[in-house]
Simulated scan of single mutants.
Amino acid sequence: MKAAFIKQTGSFKEIQIGDLPIPKTKADEVLVRVIAVSVNYVDTFVRGGGFKTEMKFPFVIGRDAVGEVVDTNNGFVKGQLVWTNSMGYDGRTGTTSEFVAIPKDRLFVAPKVDPIKLVASVHSSATAAIILRDIFQINKGKKILIEGGAGHVGRKLVELANLAGLVVSTTSNQKDFAKLAQLGSKNCFDYQQSTAKIADKFDYIIDTSGKVSLQTNLDKLNLFGQIGLITAPKDNNFNFNVRQMYTQSQSIKGFVISHASLSQIQTSAKLLNQYFAQGKLLDEEILSLPITQAQHAHELMEQHVKAKLVLTVN
């Protein structure tokens, strides 16, 4: 089968396109013929060796995939459209290949939607869903500020937070105000203006850009407020008033989806499928490339291309 793989970690130039054996499924796995995979920043970290995880070479890259069931074991039906978003790390093979064997408990039947739009959404949508429901454990009616709301994860946070009944505020470029308002942002603030100038305070704040100081966000938290970190400033340093934080019973919570539990992955998948079936969370601007351009896709990702990158396999 055709696959995109590496024989050692390193730059995007390490990615090779070649033939590998079709995987043999274990008792708890389902063989899937891959249609497309998305490319995420974390894929470049795994490939480059920055994200330390178990891998066996040649290592097939990629974690998200949409495809069709080949066999009929483990409760799945041949030809079913399915998706996954937790492969390609922690000892599991990647997905950028014509066929992949996926553990049944990490495989989800897809609703009848465009498979390319679905696979472009799952990484950002699952990240947002787990942050809101499991990390923050949000309560309806509370206020959330999403900084960098126009990015991939930012837009999913806006849409899901609004659907969950939160009062949503965002920071972004002014050109994105209309789109964010459409997704559910009640208040849109120009990201070029300091968050410190926002008059309101919030129960939850998440900075998707890594450009706002931790102390500035702490100053904008209500009693018992929470800050979510999914990135960090380039200098990777924080200074903040510890006494202020603990006397206000505030908390700072970090999250990366690679450390999400299986139950979190499964619960978020159920929620995402409900919304996918309603046509929600499928608004990504997509740049689709063939699997043979996997190197180029990783290069573009490292250049921070704005479109969501998808590699088509079949």
Rank of each mutant, 00 (worst) to 15 (best):
D71S: 02
P23S: 11
K201G: 00
Q250I: 05
I61K: 02
I15S: 05
M245C: 12
G148H: 02
L311I: 00
P233R: 08
A129M: 15
Q295K: 15
E285I: 11
P115Q: 04
D235G: 03
I206S: 04
A129V: 11
K24T: 14
F59K: 05
F255H: 07
P115A: 00
A150G: 11
K117H: 10
I6Y: 09
T292W: 03
D134V: 00
L180W: 04
F238D: 05
N85Q: 15
A181S: 15
Q295L: 10
L309A: 04
V30H: 04
N85W: 10
P115C: 09
M245H: 07
S249E: 06
K142C: 06
M301C: 12
G50N: 15
T267F: 13
K26T: 13
S268E: 04
L145S: 01
F45G: 06
S209R: 05
I257Q: 12
S38N: 09
G94C: 04
A181G: 15
L272M: 10
V42F: 12
Q226H: 09
L145P: 02
G50Y: 13
I257E: 09
L163T: 11
T127V: 13
G254R: 08
R47L: 13
I265W: 13
E159S: 08
P58R: 04
N273D: 13
K2M: 14
F224T: 04
Y204E: 06
L118S: 07
G254K: 09
D19G: 04
I205Q: 09
N217K: 10
V77Y: 06
S121I: 10
T170N: 06
D283M: 08
L214H: 04
L20T: 10
G18A: 06
I35D: 00
T231L: 04
L20G: 06
E159G: 07
N40M: 03
Q295N: 14
V113K: 02
A294L: 13
E285T: 15
G79M: 08
G141Y: 05
K78D: 03
A128Y: 07
A260P: 07
F276I: 10
V32W: 00
S209C: 08
R133W: 10
L183C: 06
V66A: 03
V46E: 08
A178I: 01
D90Q: 14
F51N: 03
L157D: 06
H304L: 12
F45H: 14
Q250G: 11
V122G: 12
V313E: 00
Q137G: 05
F12S: 15
F202T: 06
Y41I: 00
G184S: 12
V153M: 01
H152I: 10
L214M: 15
I198G: 12
A307E: 15
H123S: 15
Q16W: 00
Y204N: 09
Q182P: 03
I257L: 15
Q226D: 02
V109I: 15
N273M: 03
V77T: 15
E147Y: 10
P111D: 12
G165P: 03
E14A: 10
E98F: 00
A307L: 09
R33H: 09
F202I: 01
F5Q: 02
P21S: 13
K179S: 14
Y204V: 03
V113Y: 09
T312M: 01
I257P: 07
L160G: 05
G225W: 02
K186P: 05
A110N: 01
V158F: 02
N73R: 15
L160R: 00
K104C: 00
A4V: 08
D90R: 11
I35G: 03
H123R: 11
S251W: 08
V109H: 00
